[in-house]
Design a protein around this nucleic acid. Sequence first.
RNA 1: GGCACGAUAGCAAAGCGGUUAUGCCGCGGCCUGCAAAGCCGUUUAGACCAGUUCGACUCUGGUUCGUGCCUCCA
Length: 473
Amino acid sequence: MLKIYNTLAREKQVFTPIIAGKVSMYVCGMTVYDYCHLGHARVMVVFDMVSRWLRVSGYAVKYVRNITDIDDKIIKRANENKETIAQLTQRFIHAMDEDSVQLGVIRPDIEPKATDFIEGMIGMISALVEKGFAYAADNGDVFYAVKNFDGYGKLSGKSLEDLRAGERVEVDTHKKDPMDFVLWKSVKPNEPSWDSPWGKGRPGWHIECSAMSSHHLGERFDIHGGGQDLQFPHHENEIAQSEAAHSHDGKSCQMVNYWMHNGFVRVDDEKMSKSLGNFFTIRTVLEKYDAEVVRFFILRAHYRSPLNYSDQHLDDAKLALTRLYTALRGHHMVSAEAIDWQHAQAARFKAALDDDFNTPEAMAVLFDLANEVNKTKSVAVAALLRNLAAILGLLQRDANEFLQGVGQVSNIQSNAVEMNQPFDSDVIDRKILERIAAKKAKNFAEADHIRKALAEAGIILEDTPQGTTWRRA
RNA sequence: GGCACGAUAGCAAAGCGGUUAUGCCGCGGCCUGCAAAGCCGUUUAGACCAGUUCGACUCUGGUUCGUGCCUCCA
């Protein structure tokens, strides 16, 4: 029985889908004006894990993750770069796709773009105006009248009074209430615009998600996710828009049953963000660390906890993942067979993920299984380890491929290249043969010398009854 | 200022009202020509102060500290 921490209720709740056997899930995706950073990676990986677990649990999942391809920052950046908005957004959508593939993220079922939904947004704004939840100001902007929506603040736990008291924004004189937010912005010079009943303009930020989620998932759906920072105002405003627009006879229709928010990635105990400038892009990190290590690092913490980024933590994650792959060495990939959920560890794994997606506990199961594989050499346990890890999107490579760093560049390896010592596998194999010969001749000094030389290039040799193997540090 | 969340061993990170979390590091042993890997064992916990309880890291209250949101942000 799956339980999910519902931000709306501030507690874990038993998950009951609207339609038995089906799950509709919407996640706020990226605004594509720059490369994705680790914070974005966390959203992608976390909700990828969530969708995988829902599917393994037997649900038919419809997973929608939007792309925001029109907003202030996009317009600004395109102007700075002297390129069109389409050129800019295409470029970064492509980069985002590359990053997510690297991180083992399965594509969402639908990735709607805001600019493809202008009509739907205009329709929704019109409905809001008709129902008295929105008004057009004399400058052509259309605002949402927050005080007309009873439940405003229910997601973020804020009251309108508190919000007004803490008001730090410059008051827009066109607004009736400082807390009102914009649905439609009137056109400005050098900005793209679309025709609307209120004149040329472009949509505000929040309306796109309301329009796209209801179009693809209906007026009411099961799960809505995103980063913690979207809780307010973005998600609060989505609720206000959707529930008011879909109200019938003055009765509002609940938009989302379960709201999920993932915690931040931090640097030096501070939120990683564009505005603070302390962010690391995914591709920067991938220059130094294997993508699976990054994925492992993300899933090693519970999705709602803060996740502190540092090289030390990535190094630690790499060593931990190495332990798992080491246990799988010699156990070749098996075709994914059905998992025996009666198995004690499998049951523990399931219980962990059913408990609000407790991936750290699920990981502990993987390590216990690795220990069992090391002790018993059981092929069945190794297969179970692999199949459970697959649910987290981990351990799907050949063990030696990971351990020997195929397709990745480690620091030490690049140093070796700089020293004109390309330690490719052929060279390593030859050195190993030389060392075996030395060992046979009882020339241990020579054998140790060879091993030491390789070690300095980051190649660790391991003698086993089956022969000598190697891996990269 | 308002609201919310958190504080676990050297580092990271979970569960749990009483029974080994887990990973990395450290230490001892086994194994090894020596290593590495692995296995076995092991040292470091639960911010502070009260309360509830036979018993609290786990529940309740308070204190302190930290982070986040209140403005674009995953």
